[in-house]
Computed example of a mutant assay.
Amino acid sequence: MPITAQHVRETVIAYLTEHPDEKDSLSALVRTLDRAGDTIASRKEFRGHVTAAAALLRPDGRVLTVEHRVLGKWLLPGGHVEENDTTLVAAALRELEEETGIAPDHVEPDSGLPLHIEVHSIPANPEKAEPRHLHFDFRFLFRTTTDRVELREEEVTAYSWQFADALTAEPLRSRIVIATR
């Protein structure tokens, strides 16, 4: 069964229980969820839709980042949820494997809760007939001991294992730094 609005809502509620200070920053997500319902998981929901990403942490404190081909930015491995994804954490794990070739049996989820939820704007893409819209990116922490990466080059162009303190996005950076301890 695809990801439902109920699953997204329950995940947001659990996240806000841990991070109540982020209620205002997630208001666009909550509003869109109320209006979109189950289409919140569809990439064709242009009021905004959920995406999932993996913060993959090695024991040496390095986090895997990939250079996104379309956006030209260094990001965590991740992307749109798909019809066969049943949870947001499973979608993050699938995206990790698709983009980096790191199989789920080399990865251990830290918890079922997102490490961070970010709301960001995606520019219009006339080639795909997509207007400017919001992504509600659910970022989950995973741990690994592998460093072998096989990029899916149609989506990402490069990868790097960065020390967590080199990341610039807050509060993601701080939360990963804490997780390294």
Rank of each mutant, 00 (worst) to 15 (best):
residue 115 L to R: 14
residue 69 R to V: 05
residue 159 Y to A: 10
residue 28 A to Y: 07
residue 125 N to F: 07
residue 109 P to K: 10
residue 67 E to G: 11
residue 91 A to C: 01
residue 28 A to I: 10
residue 72 G to V: 08
residue 79 G to H: 10
residue 45 E to W: 01
residue 145 T to W: 05
residue 23 K to M: 12
residue 116 H to A: 14
residue 166 A to D: 15
residue 47 R to D: 12
residue 27 S to W: 02
residue 77 P to F: 12
residue 4 T to W: 00
residue 49 H to T: 11
residue 135 H to G: 05
residue 121 S to M: 12
residue 139 R to L: 11
residue 9 R to M: 06
residue 49 H to I: 05
residue 5 A to N: 01
residue 115 L to G: 14
residue 49 H to A: 08
residue 4 T to G: 01
residue 29 L to D: 11
residue 23 K to E: 12
residue 164 A to R: 08
residue 92 A to G: 01
residue 135 H to I: 03
residue 68 H to L: 04
residue 117 I to L: 08
residue 180 T to D: 07
residue 138 F to C: 01
residue 164 A to C: 14
residue 55 A to P: 14
residue 108 E to R: 13
residue 130 E to C: 04
residue 27 S to I: 03
residue 14 A to Q: 12
residue 21 D to N: 14
residue 142 F to N: 01
residue 38 D to F: 07
residue 36 A to H: 06
residue 32 T to A: 14
residue 54 A to S: 13
residue 134 L to S: 12
residue 158 A to M: 07
residue 148 R to P: 01
residue 63 V to L: 07
residue 56 L to H: 11
residue 16 L to S: 07
residue 155 E to I: 03
residue 23 K to T: 15
residue 62 R to P: 03
residue 175 R to D: 13
residue 114 P to T: 00
residue 21 D to R: 13
residue 43 R to K: 13
residue 30 V to A: 15
residue 134 L to H: 15
residue 53 A to P: 09
residue 8 V to R: 01
residue 100 T to L: 06
residue 61 G to N: 11
residue 145 T to S: 13
residue 139 R to P: 04
residue 15 Y to P: 07
residue 34 D to I: 02
residue 171 P to H: 12
residue 25 S to I: 12
residue 155 E to A: 14
residue 114 P to I: 00
residue 5 A to D: 02
residue 35 R to G: 08
residue 18 E to N: 12
residue 89 V to W: 00
residue 170 E to F: 09
residue 78 G to E: 02
residue 48 G to R: 04
residue 96 L to H: 02
residue 140 F to T: 00
residue 102 I to E: 02
residue 122 I to A: 03
residue 1 M to G: 01
residue 48 G to Y: 05
residue 136 F to K: 07
residue 128 K to R: 15
residue 6 Q to I: 05
residue 178 I to S: 10
residue 133 H to N: 07
residue 17 T to K: 13
residue 75 L to W: 08
residue 102 I to N: 02
residue 77 P to S: 07
residue 92 A to P: 00
residue 49 H to M: 08
